[in-house]
Simulated scan of single mutants.
Amino acid sequence: MPAEGAGFGHHACLYGTDAEFLAMAVPFVRDGLAAGEPVLAATTPANIELLRGALGERAHALDTAETAYFGRRPVERISAFLRYHAHRARPGLRTRMIAEPVWGGKSARQVAEWKRMESGLNVLLAGLPVWMICPYDTRTVPGDVALAACATHPARLDGQRLIPCAAYADPGAYAATVALPPAPVPADAARTGPTASLARVRGFAHERAVAAGLSDERLALAVLAVCEAAGYLLAADRARIAVRAWEEPGVLAYELLRAQAADAGVPVFAGFCPPGEAAGAEDGLWLARSLSESLELRSRGPLTRLTLRIAGPRDAERLSPPCPFP
């Protein structure tokens, strides 16, 4: 197994058989446990069973999680990674994670969001003493997803052999090329602004959520998500935003558009990491991401466009089970 530095290591593993998965996973886990490092395997139940069987008595020291429940959305997934590291980190040692994404059954929008997250991890977790391997089962993942693995990871593991990914792309540039499925704003979408008044945005968000049939807690959380996103955009000097809202099947969508004379863009991966001990400028944006089904943020020159989608009243509650690492 290749030696790694002190910072974040992020590698893919493309496997097509159980034996190929174990050829990567067993040495990775075994070497970590032998060094006293915390090791997590967040993968499929079948792979967890295979890995435990191959490790024998050493399997008791391995932390495991079913990957389907280890963060349903990118913002939840990143929080789960950080919680595990914070809970299990040991001074002077790195943390090892096998983190297999779930691709089956995802919509085109969700697949695009997860591709962007895989790339974003290289920025969001940079400097963290974590070595992460992301396995991709080529028997089940779509072909474009397998190709994307080599663009979102600096290298891949073939058994114990580390192979640089020639297709690896700068995360910011890569994220800009991953297009989400088009969802044109209806011509009759309700709108307000431009305005610098958060109270006006709150009133508009509440009015549209009520009109869409949201009530009680879901109504309050929808308004909170919009206001936190708006607050982030309005924090820029002399900022004003226009807001539009419309309904799509199963969701209520809001678009916030900020235009300024000077370039006041936002970081590509802003708001993906949970708040730290000290208040940060992106804390509200993280909350908005956490409360939304999806949140897309794009900047081009002086224009910043933020689109968030909130589950509609007739959509079943889709809450992830709690992370096993508080």
Rank of each mutant, 00 (worst) to 15 (best):
E4R: 11
G5L: 10
G7D: 12
G9P: 09
H10P: 00
L14D: 10
G16Y: 10
G16Q: 12
E20K: 05
F21S: 00
L22S: 02
A25L: 06
A34R: 15
E37I: 10
T43E: 02
P45N: 11
N47R: 11
I48G: 06
G53E: 08
A59T: 07
H60K: 15
D63T: 08
T67M: 15
R73L: 11
A80T: 02
F81W: 10
R94P: 01
T95K: 05
R96M: 06
R96F: 03
I98Y: 00
P101I: 04
G105Y: 09
S107A: 09
A108K: 03
Q110T: 08
E113Y: 03
W114I: 02
K115F: 11
V123H: 08
V123C: 11
A126G: 05
V130G: 03
W131R: 06
W131N: 03
P135K: 03
R139T: 07
T140L: 09
P142W: 07
V145I: 14
A149I: 05
C150P: 02
T152S: 05
A155T: 10
D158T: 14
Q160P: 05
L162W: 03
I163N: 08
A175L: 07
T177P: 06
V178W: 01
V185M: 11
A187D: 09
T192G: 04
T192I: 12
A196H: 15
G203I: 10
R208H: 06
V210Q: 08
L214D: 02
S215K: 15
D216Q: 15
R218K: 06
R218M: 03
L221Q: 13
L224H: 10
A230I: 06
L233A: 00
D237W: 07
A239S: 14
R240D: 03
R240N: 04
E247S: 07
E248K: 03
E248Q: 08
P249T: 06
G250F: 04
V251K: 04
L256E: 02
L257A: 13
V266E: 00
P267R: 05
G271F: 01
E277M: 15
A278T: 15
G280A: 15
G284V: 03
L285S: 01
L285M: 09
L285T: 03
R289L: 06
S290Y: 14
S292H: 02
S294F: 00
S294K: 00
L295Q: 02
L297F: 05
R305Y: 10
R305T: 13
T307E: 06
R309T: 09
I310R: 01
P313I: 05
R314M: 12
D315L: 12
D315T: 13
D315N: 10
A316Q: 08
S320N: 13
P322M: 09
P322R: 14
P324L: 06
F325D: 07
P326Q: 06
